[in-house]
Every structure is written in structure tokens, then in C-alpha cells.
Design a protein around this nucleic acid. Sequence first.
DNA 1: TACGTTTACGGCAACGTTAACAAGCAGCTA
DNA 2: TAGCTGCTTGTTAACGTTGCCGTAAACGTA
Lengths: 343, 343
Amino acid sequence: MNRRAKLKDIAEALNVSITTVSRALNNKTDINPTTKQSILAMAKELNYKPNNLALSLRKSSTLNVVGVIVPHVKHYFFSTLLEGIMNSAHEMNYFVLLGESLHSTDREKKVLDDFSEHGVSGVLIAPCKHSDFNKNVLPIIHRRTPVVVMDRMYDNYNGNFVNTNDFKGAFEAVSHLVQSGYKRIAHIASSDSWSIGHERIKGYKEGLRQHGMPIDENYLSICNFNNKEEGAEEGYRACHKLFSLKEPPDAIFSVTDDIAIGVYQYAQENNISIPNDLGVVGFSNSEISKYLNPPLSTLEQNGKKMGEMAFDFFFRALNANGQIFQKSFKPELIIRGSSVLPK
Amino acid sequence: MNRRAKLKDIAEALNVSITTVSRALNNKTDINPTTKQSILAMAKELNYKPNNLALSLRKSSTLNVVGVIVPHVKHYFFSTLLEGIMNSAHEMNYFVLLGESLHSTDREKKVLDDFSEHGVSGVLIAPCKHSDFNKNVLPIIHRRTPVVVMDRMYDNYNGNFVNTNDFKGAFEAVSHLVQSGYKRIAHIASSDSWSIGHERIKGYKEGLRQHGMPIDENYLSICNFNNKEEGAEEGYRACHKLFSLKEPPDAIFSVTDDIAIGVYQYAQENNISIPNDLGVVGFSNSEISKYLNPPLSTLEQNGKKMGEMAFDFFFRALNANGQIFQKSFKPELIIRGSSVLPK
DNA sequence: TACGTTTACGGCAACGTTAACAAGCAGCTA
DNA sequence: TAGCTGCTTGTTAACGTTGCCGTAAACGTA
């Protein structure tokens, strides 16, 4: 096979200058329609494809590449998010450069710096837990590279983002448990110090308040975890603590499905029947949830749609100078067997 | 912030030529150690970082980028594979360009062509189901770009690969079921026409043979599926068919965990007790498996290790001209509650 | 002294592309 | 007819880097 055709080849074949060829292929003005036609024809004949590497150097930015960084690809939500991003990216002829932070803010910084060095045209970031906005993200924005923050929020951040309305989700979960007839609703929460944990706690409390139920701080159990395995263990421990109270809860809104798994394990070992003795609602509709016994009620975050929109925001931000794109997805309550008392 | 320092800046600061600076920074000969020291010092002072874009053009290949393509990121096995690849890549300062084939051979081709166009230094591919080696992969190899095939095999392929020893895995699963005391072992299989399905069927039959058990083609149920949801449904259907036989099986080796979920659903609806009436063994130790009731025995494929090795193979192939790297991972049998009869 | 060899460096070209400027030419106006 | 205008094309430089070649100075050898 011959080497790839370049502008020069077309130019020589037609006895015109390289510039003229470039003009024809880039739909520039200042070109005779006849010349243009013959150039286009020749380009097709020689199967001309522009050289991305040269273009990148010329424009001093990689062409059609977005950097995407998430804490863990293997978490279901992030992999669906990624799926959405890749769908849209593929449609728009964009490449996805992928990195994982593994919930380390240092690694996150390293990956983002690498992205910059590689000259990505944009960055889509699902921040790690203690992500440092000023240190990690701000430098990218200063380079005028479009950034879209996904999934969780930075304090006082006012750029492009796509996230879940955690507050509303938690509120709905609690409302549902109340309507199902549960009276003492606990929340196994994630740290108050990051947006997801914070907003869900707020939604939980507001849910209780609006239904005229007391807020008992003993029913708020905060735990710390970074991956699924820890999640289940933490859930188990938290559940154990809740059931050591004088008056244990009769329902638990769990900040994630993984933690709910720990609750299930504790319940099974202690002969606590779900949903009869204990109602449970999780968060994120992980693939496991519907196969649990009983199937777990939870909130669907629709990672795929979020991913698609995140890419779309990036794409629009590229050409809209200064305009900011924001969207908060209301999660959808999925009611299954774990939170409905049989009549 | 100033713009990034380039060779010219260092050269002007020290009154030497650009070439000399380049030599110093690239550990070339023909340079005075003293000059070299001062150049290195100045490079550090100006925080010089080579411009990848320019380098890419010069070498006409993107620097430090591998293209990775898998059928679906959201499948647990592939996401762990990806995790392994990214770990190793990150360590070696490589970027990962990600694509999904979604089990479409056309899309696979498109993504691979895009990779080539982008000038990746290597390609790691987990082929889609009906992937066309000659059309999709061969052109890349012809460009002398190192390729590592992961997870499944092409017929007569003799390049770099990393996969699961599906034959041994299936063999072990069947042996285990025999040793547990099951007598009529069925296999819900995947299509015989691709390596994974084929090898597992072979392993299943060989397992029966070596334990002196008859091979009943009625107990071999082949089904077709491309994603989890279909998997469970197909499993359910296949199970239904098996239990319509005059003499239904008392154990099922399922080609994937997803299909095993369908088996569980059928069993629950029809009051078939696992493991008492029916032993079940799955494949791939998906995250769901240990949370099923009873927990599902299965085969761990260790995607992370495979991913790490796949990248390692690529990396070594870069500099080892012609040498071929191959590794078949023996999956590890994980015995849980679904395949052991109580004494 | 004369010549070859080594050491250390600089100049130029090239990777493929595009932007800015220059320039040729036809047609039109005064 | 001189000069202006608009249309079309070509020339040059630049993006940042490295490989090739050339060469001056210092050194060694007969």
C-alpha cells in the first residue's frame, strides 16, 4: 500500500499550489468553483485524509479529543456515564482520552496535567472525593479549555456541569417511605463534607420535616467508604449500630445501593424481614439492585443520559464564548419490593 | 502565566543553538558535559516540557497513546480489564484512547480506523462477537502498529494475546459439579461459532467425558445474547426448555453469570431449590454473583491482571521486533452456596 | 610542519498544515 | 490610457522538534 496522500500530492497532480488545495478542502472563499471541484475530485481519488498530527501542531491543540476522568471506571454509574459520553463523542467524531483518579486528588491532578500537556480540546471530570478545584481544575479553565463537571459539585462552582439532583432524590425516597407507612426512618449517609453526601442529608431531613416527622440525630449514621466492598461493610456496621438503639428504625434510606447491600446482609443474619420489619431504599439503581431479594427500591441516576449531555455541553461550550451550561437531573424513584408493606 | 517554554527559549537564554539544546535534553552524544549541565539547569528553571504535538508530527505517530477498544465498558469484566490497562498505562506515562464496539463489527472497524488516523502507538482490542480480523485488525498490523488481542481469540491468530483459558474453566466447573454429587449436568452455552462459546462447550464435554458421564445433546442449550438484560432472559428461556425435558438436569453450568441470573429467576418461580434441586455454576465472577441468594459459584477471570499484562505485552512488543507475547489465564473456581449439596 | 582525527557545536530541512501577505489579471471607470 | 477593483492564485513563514550534514578548533601523529 502507498503512503497516505497529502495536500502536496493533490497539488502536484493538478498543477496548483498547496495553499489552493487547502482552500478548496476547507471551504474557504477566494477560490474558483471549477478549481475547487477538480481538487475535491482528486482528493477523493487519492483518498485524501487530513493529517491530524500536523493539524494538532498547527492549531496547538489536539484535534477532536476530550479528556474524561472518573474516580473508578468499574463503578456501574461511571461506566454508564462513560457510555453516554462515548456515544455522543463517537457521533461527533471525537476521541475519548480516559483517566482514573481512584479517589486520589494527587493522581487526579497528574492525569489532568497530562491531559493538558496532550492538548485535549476539552475536559469532562467526575471529581474524586476530596478533589481540589483550585489546584486541579482551575489551571485548565485558565487555559481556556472547556470543562464540564459531572456527578458532583464543587462549592461555589459556577461553570458547566451536569449532575444529579441529590436533594430531590433523597426527598422523594423519604416521602415514599413515609407514604408506605414507615414511622422511624433512618439515613445511612455519606460524609456531609462533599456535595453528594451533603445534599442527600439535606433532602432526607427536609423530607421528614415536610411530613411532620421528628428529626432524630441518632437515626443519621454517617459513614465513610470509597468502593463497593467497603460500602457493604460500612452499611453492615451502620445497620448494626442503628439496631442497637433503644428504638431501632423501621426503615432505612441508604445513600448508595452498595451500602444497602450491607443492610440486607445484617437483616438476613438477624432475621429482620425486608420489607415487613424494615423498609429499604437505596440510591443509583446499580445493576445489583433488581436481583437482590427482595428487589431493592432505589433511585435511577441515568448515567448514560448525563454522559451524553455532558459531552453535548462541552461541544457547545467550544463555540459559545462564555456561555455556561448547567443541568441537574432529577433522579427517578424505582419502587421495588424492599419498601412496600404488604397490605 | 507565560506561555510554555520551548527549546528556542532555552537556546536564547544560553546563547547556544536549538540543536544543542535538543541534544542535551535527549541524552545525545556530541555535547560537552558542562554545556549539557547548564542546559539542563536552564530547562528546569524555565520548567521546560517537550511539546507532544510537535513530537508527534516529527515522529509521525502520537506519542505515548494506546487505543483500547472493548464491546461494552459497562460490563464488569471489561471495566476491570480497563482498570488494569489504565493502571499500567499510567505507570508508564501512557494515555488510553477509549472506544466501544457495542458488538458491531462495523463500528469496531470505524473506531480502529480512527485510532490509526490518530496515530496511536498501539492497539489493545477485546474483539466484538463477530469481529472480522482481516478487515478490522490486519490493516493495523500492516502499519506495524503493535496489537494485543484480549479476552477472546481469532481463528488461527498467532500474534500477541491475553485471554482466559475457557476450556480449563469449563472443565473445572463441570468437575466441581460432578464432585458435588450432581448427576445430570446441563450447559447453557453461548454460540459455538466464537472462541469463548466454543471453548467452554469443549471444556464442558471433556469434563463429562473424563468423569465417565454420558453426553446428552439435549442438555446442551445454546443461546444468543449481547448484553446483560438479554442474558438473564435467555437464561430463563433456556432453563424453561431444560425443565420441559422428560428428565430435567440437576445441575447447570452457565456460560455467564448473567445467564445464571435467569436460571435463578426460573428456579424461584418454579420452586426449584438451589442448590438442593439444582446446582448452578456461572462464569466470570461478576459483582452480582456473591450477592445472589444463594451466592453463585463461578469462575473468576481476573480482568485487572489481564489488563495489566495486555499493556505490558504491548509495551514490550514496541521494542522487541517480531517477538510475540501470549498468555492464557486459568480462571479460578470460586465455590459458593449454589453448587454444594448440604450433607 | 602538515595532515588526519576527534570534539562540540550550528545551520538547514523536514514532518503536513494553514494564515497572512503578495501578485497577476481581467474588467471597469474617469 | 492610467488607475482602481475584485477575483483567483501563489509565496512565505510558522507551529516545535529532531536528523543530517557541515565545520571550526583542538589535539595527535609522523
